[in-house]
């Protein structure tokens, strides 16, 4: 009895607050995840019962050129796109955090691209911008530069998707803004009295104090960029073309699962991705002690 009581005193409230999440974890998350882990060791065509195949899916994955290519495409997207997107989001958030007139309207306007989400309108728009006769080429033509078909050239198509990622920077921007709001104004006042310039204020006050949100944005954007699906799906029409240059990891996984009916193989691909994302996330967490400051 005594130990029970002590355990309750130590853990009770914590687990009470955690209860809804734990319930969700053990039902809604664990069951489907467990099932897909099992399926990754089977041959499963979705309509008939899965057949145990051991490590076959994982073994054939490493001999799959398309898989290797999709991994490469995704890594480019993540490690080029995410830093650029975050820099841009932070920059705009800093601009919009000042007391300029009409800032509310601007903030809403800057969020507009993200409101579109994965709408089909984006596909039309991107072709209008980066197609053979798109706006970008018209503008380049005006200054005498011959453009190219940005969206359909194997060497540039992925960059149009990275631009799309940067353009839809609304979510990290809002989070940065919310973080900037938590920086106590007294600190700025104090430093102004000390005669600190803007850049030094940013370096020594703003930046350290928003490292928790920066850290959050970095982790979350990396996790989600690894799983990016919709942009490539709508812009390449699900094909990942031209020449697989926009064949994102999850797009390939989707093709395997839903088009080729190889859900077992798709599950193996998914679990490999999970391990890869976990690796990079763990890396960021490991370094975070060096650069993330909490006020606690």
């Amino acid at each position: 009895m005594q130990t029970w009581k002590r355990m309750w005193a130590r853990n009770g409230v914590g687990y009470l607050f955690l209860a809804p999440w734990l319930l969700g974890l053990f039902t809604l998350s664990a069951i489907p995840m467990g099932a897909s882990l099992y399926l990754s060791f089977t041959e499963y065509d979705m309509f008939t019962s899965p057949e145990w195949s051991g490590l076959d899916n994982y073994v054939s994955m490493f001999g799959d050129d398309k898989w290797r290519n999709s991994l490469q495409v995704t890594l480019t997207y993540v490690f080029l796109g995410v830093p650029l997107q975050l820099l841009f989001a932070l920059f705009i958030a800093l601009l919009l955090n000042r007391g300029i007139r009409g800032v509310r309207i601007y903030r809403a306007i800057y969020y507009v691209p993200s409101l579109f989400g994965g709408s089909v309108a984006i596909a039309l728009l991107w072709r209008q911008l980066f197609g053979r006769e798109g706006l970008v080429n018209t503008m380049l033509g005006a200054i005498g530069i011959e453009g190219k078909n940005w969206i359909a050239s194997p060497d540039t198509a992925i960059y149009t998707l990275i631009i799309l990622l940067i353009w839809q920077f609304g979510a990290p921007m809002v989070i940065f803004l919310a973080g900037l709001k938590q920086v106590p104004t007294e600190l700025y006042e104090a430093s102004t009295i000390d005669g600190a310039g803007k850049w030094r204020q940013f370096r020594s006050i703003t930046l350290p104090l928003i490292t928790p949100v920066l850290f959050f944005n970095l982790v979350m954007q990396i996790i989600s960029a690894f799983q990016a699906f919709t942009p490539a799906y709508i812009i390449s029409g699900g094909s990942g073309g031209p020449l697989d240059s926009t064949l994102f990891y999850t797009l390939y996984l989707y093709q395997k699962g839903f088009t080729h009916f190889q859900m077992g193989y798709a599950s193996a691909l998914a679990w490999f991705l999970l391990v890869a994302i976990a690796f990079f996330t763990a890396l960021i967490f490991a370094t975070s002690k060096k650069w993330v400051y909490y006020q606690e």
């Binding site: 197609g131 969206i151 073309g241």
Partner: peptide, 15 residues
């Protein structure tokens, strides 16, 4: 050419 073909490959009927 290949790029133009790809660009329009998945274009909706109207386009």
């Amino acid at each position: 050419d290949a790029a133009t073909g790809t660009e329009y490959e998945n274009a909706p009927l109207e386009q």
